[in-house]
Design a protein around this nucleic acid. Structure first.
Lengths: 205, 205
DNA sequence: CCGAACCAACCTAACGCTTGTTAGGTTATA
DNA sequence: TATAACCTAACAAGCGTTAGGTTGGTTCGG
């Protein structure tokens, strides 16, 4: 039985991890010092080095963990066979859920990876590209099958994902929507567009 | 007649301004030191203080200039009377053109304002909100007139602008599009959506 | 037309402070 | 007793910034 009184081995490490995720995504990697991170936890800065060999290693682990979280989130969607429209919708919803439920990780996935030094930066961009590739593939198929308008999959995936990433802080007038509902709202807007269909007037009765 | 040989008064200041815009938007405000900025120009760090009282003043001027550029870009569109669909399209095109033609300023407008200290930060957010308000207003009218689908203007404007902001680095396979063309491409996607209209099959002949 | 006064731009040198990181000692748990 | 977690103390380097001196073009009185 592992005790849980004063010195805990794995617990502390995960607290450092979670706190760093929060601070890095709120204030940025460069805007967060090891001393501030340590103080937030209640230890000294030097003590962090018992768990992580450097500040950048911490960022690296955070970034990889975040990438993994996004991969995991869309994995079940990729496994299903669905028409492109439904599949793209499901991908967007899964992505939005991941962004909202893991806001801290998401912030790092989206912006703080810039401060990784080579070769990790390049490795990371490859991870991201592979992820975006799933969206591009669904878009490509939808265009091919005539269910999507003839759009450039690279351009469209960039637009869709950057829109999805911005939903993180969204709260509507009646308070926060559920991640699921917010994802559907976003998918409605992006898949069907802003313009109302002229062929079907609002409510013909 | 003002000479232009060795000591130039206004010229140097604008070089500092432009170089700072470039570095701040590439590496971030915190990731750029005064010494690096100075070295890039070919002077010493201390010399910058003959032109700007502090690093943050530099950021502040950059941020305000960027906000002004966006306001100026959409001003002529606001002056015209247009149906909501056309107006929103024109706003998006103008915004995209501004993002692309002034990439450095745009980067600060979009991300680096976070490092402004109060009360400038709040002032800046108000500027941004006023700008986004123009988009919300057009969206509101479009919904009211039944030309847009029933969407939340606040949510939609957030989505549209975050998508537009991400076009900065976009290059398609045949090289860079003109800002104008890129803006139209984006507006097509956002206004009409991803899904092909079912009422009008692709090419019925 | 010329030398002196002026002034803005730029420099060197240094300040106080914070940064990430390390060495070495302490302490409590297993 | 062994070990991992944590501490104190300090390091070299970098940060934004300032004080004070140098330079060179501009301006103006004689």
């Amino acid at each position: 039985m592992q005790a849980a009184s004063a010195k805990r081995p794995q617990d502390r490490k995960s607290v450092i991890f979670a706190t760093a995720a929060q601070l890095f995504s709120q204030q940025g990697y460069l805007g967060t010092s090891m001393r501030e991170l340590a103080e937030r936890i209640g230890i000294e800065a030097a003590s962090i080095y018992s768990h992580y060999p450097s500040k950048e290693d911490l960022l690296r682990e955070l970034a990889w963990k975040a990438a993994e979280a996004f991969d995991t989130a869309i994995e079940p969607v990729l496994a299903h066979v669905l028409p492109p429209g439904r599949k793209l919708r499901a991908l967007l919803v899964a992505h939005v859920c991941c962004v909202i439920e893991q806001q801290a990780s998401a912030g790092i996935f989206l912006t703080e990876w810039r401060h990784l030094s080579e070769p990790y930066r390049t490795d990371y961009l490859n991870l991201r590209d592979r992820y975006e590739g799933h969206f591009r593939e669904v878009l490509r198929q939808g265009v091919l099958q005539g269910q999507f308008r003839p759009l450039d999959p690279r351009f469209a995936s960039l637009i869709l994902l950057s829109a999805a990433n911005m939903t993180a802080g969204w709260r509507n007038a009646e308070g926060p929507l559920s991640p699921e509902a917010l994802g559907q709202e976003l998918a409605d807007l992006l898949l069907q567009g802003v313009i109302a269909p002229t062929a079907t007037p609002p409510s013909p009765n």
